Amino acid sequence: QTVVIGDTTYHLNNPEAAQQIAKELAKKYGLKVVISGNTIKLK
Rank of each mutant, 00 (worst) to 15 (best):
Q19D: 05
N38C: 11
L25H: 00
L25Y: 05
K43G: 06
T39L: 07
K32D: 06
V33K: 00
A17M: 12
T2D: 07
K32F: 10
Q20P: 00
K23P: 00
L31W: 11
T2E: 05
P15Q: 08
G37F: 08
E24G: 06
L25P: 00
T39I: 12
K43M: 15
A26D: 02
E16D: 08
A26R: 06
Q20C: 14
V4K: 09
I21P: 00
A22E: 01
K32S: 12
K41S: 12
K27D: 09
K43T: 14
V34K: 04
N14K: 04
E16I: 10
N38Y: 06
D7S: 13
E24W: 15
T39F: 07
Q1V: 15
Y29E: 01
L42S: 01
Q20M: 11
Q20Y: 11
Q19T: 09
K41T: 15
L12V: 10
T8K: 13
E16T: 09
V4L: 07
I21D: 00
V33H: 00
T9F: 08
A26T: 03
P15Y: 12
S36H: 09
K41M: 14
V3R: 02
D7T: 14
H11L: 08
L31I: 08
L42F: 09
V3F: 10
V33G: 00
N14Y: 07
H11Y: 14
N38W: 05
G6L: 07
Y29P: 02
V4N: 04
K27R: 12
G37Y: 05
K43L: 15
T8E: 06
T8V: 13
N13W: 12
S36I: 13
K32H: 10
N13A: 13
T2F: 13
V3S: 02
A22I: 12
Q1P: 11
T2Q: 07
N14P: 08
H11G: 03
V4F: 06
L31N: 02
T2M: 10
V33Q: 01
Q19K: 11
Q1Y: 15
S36F: 12
V3M: 07
K27W: 07
Q1K: 09
A26H: 04
Q19N: 07
A22D: 00
N13T: 10
L31F: 11
L42E: 01
A17R: 10
T39S: 06
N38S: 07
K41F: 15
Q20F: 12
T8D: 04
Y10V: 06
G37S: 04
I40H: 00
N14W: 11
T39D: 03
I21T: 04
Y29S: 01
I21C: 15
A26W: 13
V34I: 11
I21F: 15
V4G: 03
L12Q: 01
A17S: 08
V4C: 15
I5H: 04
L12D: 00
K32N: 08
N38F: 07
G30E: 02
L25V: 03
Q19Y: 15
T9Q: 06
N38K: 08
A18L: 11
K43E: 14
G37E: 04
A22L: 11
K23C: 13
A17D: 11
L31D: 01
G6Y: 10
K43S: 13
V4M: 10
G30F: 06
Q1L: 15
I21H: 03
T8S: 07
T2C: 15
G30V: 03
K23Q: 11
Y10Q: 01
P15L: 12
A26Q: 05
K23H: 11
Q19M: 15
Q1D: 08
T2A: 09
D7V: 12
K32M: 13
V4E: 05
K28H: 04
